Amino acid sequence: MNDLATLRVLVAEDQAAVRAGLVLILDAAPGIEVVGQAADGADAVALARSLRPDVVLMDVRMPRLDGISATRELTADGLDVLVLTTFDLDEYVFGALRAGAAGFLLKSADADRLVEAVRLVARGDGFLAPEVTRRLIHAFAGPPGSRLAEGPEPADEALASLTPRERDVLGCLGRGMSNQRIAEHLDMAEATAKTHVSRILTKLGLRSRVQAAILAQQRGIGE
């Protein structure tokens, strides 16, 4: 996305009142325009493919086509999806993580956090609410039978293939850093940080930097 361009967002939420509130907040934010609204997952996919927004804000529970399936289809098309969820995580969230969602935001988040999350996802930095991170880590760390879904788990050989610099970048991802912050922290250009992130995802067979952040925290990389 061009940094000087208006950030275009599609809001997919089945509850009309909640959807109206999200649209109101986003349209009021400088440089953001809501270009479409959808009340179910099927319409969200169709509209997103037609409008090609910078970010799709997707409710995890949607009629006709659930949020996971919609997210999977849209990420396969190269679109960035920011998933809305409640604090009580369920299997939908884990499915969305595996489907390549670029971020997870609690429905209880305030207006500033919503706008921040949308901007970060549009920039390619991803967003993971701290509360969601803790719940995901706890679920993935538990006994296999207690997991609602398996998390991304690259082989040890894949992790070993990372260069020392890539491992440093992975550790930064685990601490929730944006590309800009990674660049500042590791004294490199932001474009270089972005390239490292892309290579890490490719080597580890991951679909999003959110998956990489979860993995880094699971493995204690960068602590």
Rank of each mutant, 00 (worst) to 15 (best):
residue 77 D to P: 03
residue 77 D to F: 03
residue 79 L to S: 08
residue 79 L to K: 15
residue 79 L to A: 07
residue 80 D to P: 08
residue 81 V to S: 12
residue 81 V to R: 14
residue 81 V to N: 08
residue 81 V to P: 06
residue 82 L to S: 14
residue 82 L to F: 02
residue 83 V to Y: 15
residue 83 V to Q: 13
residue 84 L to N: 14
residue 86 T to N: 08
residue 86 T to L: 14
residue 87 F to S: 13
residue 88 D to Y: 15
residue 89 L to W: 06
residue 89 L to R: 10
residue 89 L to N: 06
residue 90 D to Y: 12
residue 91 E to D: 12
residue 91 E to V: 11
residue 91 E to Y: 10
residue 91 E to N: 10
residue 92 Y to A: 14
residue 93 V to P: 03
residue 95 G to D: 05
residue 95 G to K: 10
residue 96 A to Y: 10
residue 96 A to H: 07
residue 96 A to N: 06
residue 96 A to T: 07
residue 96 A to V: 07
residue 96 A to I: 08
residue 98 R to E: 05
residue 99 A to L: 08
residue 100 G to L: 01
residue 101 A to E: 09
residue 101 A to K: 12
residue 101 A to W: 09
residue 103 G to W: 02
residue 104 F to A: 12
residue 105 L to T: 05
residue 108 S to I: 14
residue 108 S to K: 03
residue 108 S to M: 14
residue 109 A to M: 11
residue 109 A to R: 01
residue 112 D to S: 12
residue 112 D to C: 08
residue 113 R to C: 09
residue 114 L to H: 07
residue 114 L to W: 09
residue 115 V to K: 06
residue 115 V to G: 08
residue 115 V to D: 02
residue 115 V to P: 04
residue 115 V to T: 11
residue 115 V to F: 13
residue 117 A to Y: 01
residue 117 A to M: 04
residue 119 R to W: 00
residue 120 L to E: 11
residue 120 L to C: 09
residue 120 L to R: 13
residue 121 V to T: 02
residue 121 V to S: 03
residue 122 A to M: 09
residue 123 R to P: 08
residue 124 G to A: 05
residue 125 D to W: 02
residue 127 F to D: 09
residue 128 L to T: 04
residue 129 A to G: 11
residue 129 A to F: 00
